[in-house]
């Protein structure tokens, strides 16, 4: 304590946050009991920690952040797809091919979660377990990302326009037909997702459609 009748700033602060040595703090307790001014000031400093510990008001926007977070998580699972070659390419090595499919399969296996209830064949009845919720599976397709495929599809569509004149008419007709089928499915799925944004099955179906769209567009390079 200073020569004045009151605690120093350092003493008040360290008393308030509990960082003062126990023996020293015990020695100052008597002053706090005798000095309302110092006691009130230390209590004000302690109040900050108490206020800080109170639950913070919930931000209503937080729930709306999840779709973007999920999208970023999915994008990080994308396995880089080699660019499509304009000319016939050599068959991939066995090891690379097997590793790719094995990696995809391992991702499928690692991500697979099935909520199952036993329904055994044989003696006794088999019971169906029917869920009321739309989404029951939690299998996430590794290497899929809606946004990533959407962006890639747009790049490939731009390239298609540049290559259009060089593509055989019958091939172009086939591409446009296939893209029409896929785009209709994408449109239906995106509308459904707007109505039910938390449905993982819808997202997985949309990813599948986008992946097929990208693959059709990549085949353009071979159709010239």
């Amino acid at each position: 304590m200073s020569d004045s009748a009151h605690l120093t700033e350092a003493e008040r602060q360290t008393l308030a946050d509990g960082s003062m040595a126990t023996r020293q703090a015990r020695g100052l307790q008597a002053h706090l009991r005798a000095c309302p001014s110092c006691a009130a000031d230390v209590d004000r400093l302690r109040m900050i920690a108490r206020r800080y510990g109170e639950p913070a008001p919930r931000d209503p926007v937080l729930a709306g952040l999840w779709p973007e977070i999920r999208s970023r998580i999915e994008r990080r699972k994308v396995v880089p797809i080699p660019p499509a070659a304009a000319s016939p390419r050599p068959a991939p090595s066995l090891r690379r091919s097997v590793l790719l499919i094995a990696g995809t399969a391992a991702g499928l296996a690692a991500a697979a979660v099935l909520w199952l209830r036993p329904a055994r064949l044989g003696p006794g009845p088999v019971s169906d377990q029917v869920r009321a919720r739309d989404s029951i599976q939690a299998l996430v397709l590794v290497a899929d990302s809606i946004r990533s495929y959407r962006d890639e599809a747009q790049v490939l569509l731009d390239r298609l326009e540049l290559q259009r004149a060089m593509i055989r008419p019958e091939a172009m007709a086939s591409i446009e037909r296939d893209l029409g089928v896929i785009d209709r499915s994408i449109e239906e799925l995106e509308l459904a997702i707007q109505r039910d944004p938390r449905n993982p099955t819808l997202r997985q179906l949309l990813v599948s459609s986008y992946r097929q769209k990208v693959e059709v567009l990549k085949r353009v390079g071979n159709a010239g």
């Binding site: 999840w66 998580i73 999915e74 991500a111 979660v113 939690a138 996430v140 993982p200």
Partner: peptide, 11 residues
């Protein structure tokens, strides 16, 4: 489940 890759559980 999230540690096993379940994104819905992570949600």
């Amino acid at each position: 489940r999230a540690q096993q890759g379940d994104v819905d559980a992570f949600e």
